[in-house]
Design a binder for these strands. Structure first.
Length: 425
DNA sequence: TCTGGGGTCCTAGGACCC
DNA sequence: TCTGGGGTCCTAGGACCC
């Protein structure tokens, strides 16, 4: 029987912030999404105050002062760096690792000797000591069961942060399945949960009793697979090497509504630069770029939103070529007289560099100067910060009138010499 | 007044083929 | 009046994840 572990950091963003501001321990802390829009991470104290995951800031803003909540803008540079260290520590426990997201990782511990619970505790302890983050460990014969056990490890005190499916008695397993709502299962989201509930399927145990054929025909192959995974049959492989991306996007909501085409051009330019940078660092090329703009979906007045895909003559990673296509697309979909709230670009039809089929008229050697130019731009931007070098159409104002709101962002403690934490004497 | 960003995969339906 | 069966490919939309 395989033993898959899922290691997941507790309130990851909040824990990262607390690491550098220990005075935040024990206090309600909330980290906001981009543009200071919604709550995306909450300390247990903030959860206890009833602030929901994803809840818009303005809906609970009045509680900030009365309940002394600490509100922080998200600091992805910091979180990404701590995530890298966290994953590094985990890799010491098994060579078979799948980094699943910024704050969680699967490990195949099948071949790792020793008592699983003690092993889980050792993982917790080492991550705590070496990186400073609190984590919980769930283990099971499939990824879905490992996820579910991680949920138990987090929510139920009796597990002390580590839950291994195989170490539980049959009765204990049954009780947990009966007591857990089906919506907690990985792969069962809001819509599916609602549909299942109207059919009388409320607990994970109910779900396991459904006829697989019926599940498959009614809900599709994914849910049937989820059921098998919960029965202990491993259907999802550990993906040690992440497959090449199929799309790369960059989009942002604006801090202020935007009406002028010139401002949208600035935004689309910056997003295209960012997407092209990601493309190059992945060693990929794109043959399709899609531009989208839209007004706020939350306003009652007439809305406008459109996207357009512009095909390129050949796969490219050149900011210049991608930008020309993006701005041409933007011209076609822009309509005067609307208050735009968001814009974005998406690159797709991606191929790995060097595997492209050249057309009759392409001259690969002509791209060499451009390649060197782009490498230089990427190097400068890595050293001097995002957007240090950008096309002129991006404009010179900074911050821009429409830049996203980030009212209370913490310093880049671990990635910028200028922002290193200082030790007070 | 104020509501994130970046991904993946599946399915249904239409166009088209023999 | 009555008009097959089986396949591929593409796209849009919808669901899921963190």
């Amino acid at each position: 029987m395989r033993r898959i572990a899922l290691v997941d950091a507790n309130n990851f963003y909040v824990s990262c912030e607390r690491l550098f501001q220990p005075t935040l321990e024990g206090r309600p802390v909330v980290v906001l999404s981009n543009n200071d829009g919604c709550a995306v991470a909450r300390s247990p104290e903030a959860k206890a105050l009833g602030i929901q995951m994803g809840q818009p800031y303005f809906q609970w803003k009045d509680r900030v002062r009365t309940r002394h909540i600490v509100v922080l803008s998200s600091n992805y540079t910091l979180y990404a760096d701590l995530s890298r260290r966290f994953m590094g520590v985990l890799s010491q426990f098994s060579p078979l690792q799948e980094v699943y997201s910024i704050d969680e990782s699967f490990l195949d511990l099948t071949a790792t000797p020793g008592d699983p619970i003690l092993l889980g505790q050792a993982i917790r302890q080492r991550v705590r000591q070496w990186v400073g983050l609190p984590v919980c460990v769930g283990m099971g014969p499939s990824k879905t069961l490992a996820k579910l056990c991680n949920h138990f490890a987090k929510k139920r005190r009796e597990f002390a942060g580590v839950c291994d499916w195989a170490s539980l008695s049959r009765e204990h397993q049954q009780r947990l399945l009966q007591e857990t709502p089906v919506g907690e299962v990985w792969g069962i989201g809001r819509q599916l949960c609602q549909k299942l509930e109207t059919l009388g399927v409320r607990s994970v145990s109910d779900f396991l009793q459904q006829d697989p054929q019926w599940l498959r025909s009614r809900f599709g192959v994914l849910l049937a697979r989820t059921q098998r995974e919960l029965q202990g049959q491993s259907c999802l492989a550990l993906e040690e090497v992440s497959p090449p991306k199929q799309q790369i996007q960059s989009s942002r909501s604006f801090g202020q509504p935007v009406t002028a085409l010139a401002d949208l051009r600035e935004a689309v330019t910056l997003y295209t630069c960012r997407a092209a940078e990601k493309l190059r660092s992945a060693g990929q090329r794109a043959q399709l770029i899609e531009v989208s703009i839209r007004t706020s979906v939350f306003r009652p007045d007439p809305q406008y939103g459109r996207s357009i895909a512009v095909a390129l003559a050949h796969p490219t990673d050149s900011t210049r070529e991608l930008l020309a296509a993006a701005l041409q697309g933007l011209r076609e979909i822009y309509r005067d007289g609307f208050q735009y709230a968001k814009a974005g670009v998406r690159l797709s039809a991606l191929s790995v560099q060097g595997t492209d089929t050249l057309d009759l008229f392409s001259r690969p050697e002509a791209g060499e100067r451009e390649t060197r130019l782009l490498q230089a731009v990427d190097t400068v931007n890595r050293r001097y910060g995002k957007g240090a070098l950008a096309p002129g159409v991006a404009g010179l104002r900074n911050p821009r009138s429409w830049s996203m709101r980030q009212g209370t962002k913490s310093p880049a403690y671990t990635t910028s010499w200028a922002e290193l934490p200082r030790v007070r004497a």
